[in-house]
């Protein structure tokens, strides 16, 4: 065996390898923000779509912190997070919306919101009848909350109730920024 054979092979660069770009994120978050993450012991059960997608009503939910420019922003400075959410009319134009979030890079999303909140692509797919309809409102909140139990009781439960009881969605597309 030559010296060259003993040289460790460098791990493939994630951008070229097609692996998670920021490996070990779960561990990093738990070290940096202990107790902040929701943990589940078993899988959330999977509900099947009860009708073809072309007849279904879809909603969009994201932790990207987008809201209408006419709405006051959520509190991005509170040390425990803001346990509220925003409704974003699904008919909104991109120029009517703004991202107010500090915890992820949104330079590109500021140029084109659709990279994290693809509202215009969903409007197009609806017009093409690939999606039956969109809920009148989509949903957004800030994905920085230091109390996962409170988050589940408030933001998650309130959005779930609104999605089912007020918006009558058949399915949801989630974009955890």
């Amino acid at each position: 065996m030559t010296a060259a054979d003993k040289t460790p092979v460098p791990a493939a660069e994630p951008r070229e390898a097609g692996t998670q770009l920021r490996p070990g994120l779960w561990q990093t978050i738990n070290e940096r923000y202990p107790g902040s993450m929701i943990r589940k012991e078993s899988f959330v059960s999977q509900a099947s779509l009860s009708k073809p997608l072309a007849e279904a009503r879809l909603t969009l939910i994201s932790s990207c912190g987008v809201h209408c420019k006419t709405d006051p922003p959520l509190d991005v400075c509170h040390p425990f997070g803001d346990f509220r959410f925003k409704r974003v009319p699904s008919s909104s134009k991109q120029r009517e919306l703004i991202i107010h979030q500090l915890k992820y890079p949104h330079d590109d999303a500021d140029l084109d919101l659709n990279v994290i909140f693809p509202i215009e692509r969903l409007q197009e797919l609806h017009l093409e009848r690939r999606i039956g309809s969109l809920t009148p409102n989509f949903f957004s909140f800030i994905g920085y909350n230091m109390d996962p139990e409170r988050f589940e009781r408030t933001v998650a439960a309130d959005i779930a109730d609104a999605v089912v009881q007020q918006e009558h969605a058949d399915c949801a597309l989630l974009a955890p920024a």
């Binding site: 070990g24 994120l25 779960w26 959330v44 059960s45 990279v115 920024a177």
Partner: peptide, 30 residues
């Protein structure tokens, strides 16, 4: 839609599409 496979595995969602892309770019580039 997730860019963090390990986080998604830990929180045990019903189903997810994984993209090996940066945070904040779940649907690509501008």
């Amino acid at each position: 839609v997730t860019v963090a496979r390990d986080v998604t595995e830990a929180v045990k969602v019903p189903r997810a599409l994984f993209l090996p892309w940066p945070m904040g770019h779940h649907f690509g580039v501008p």
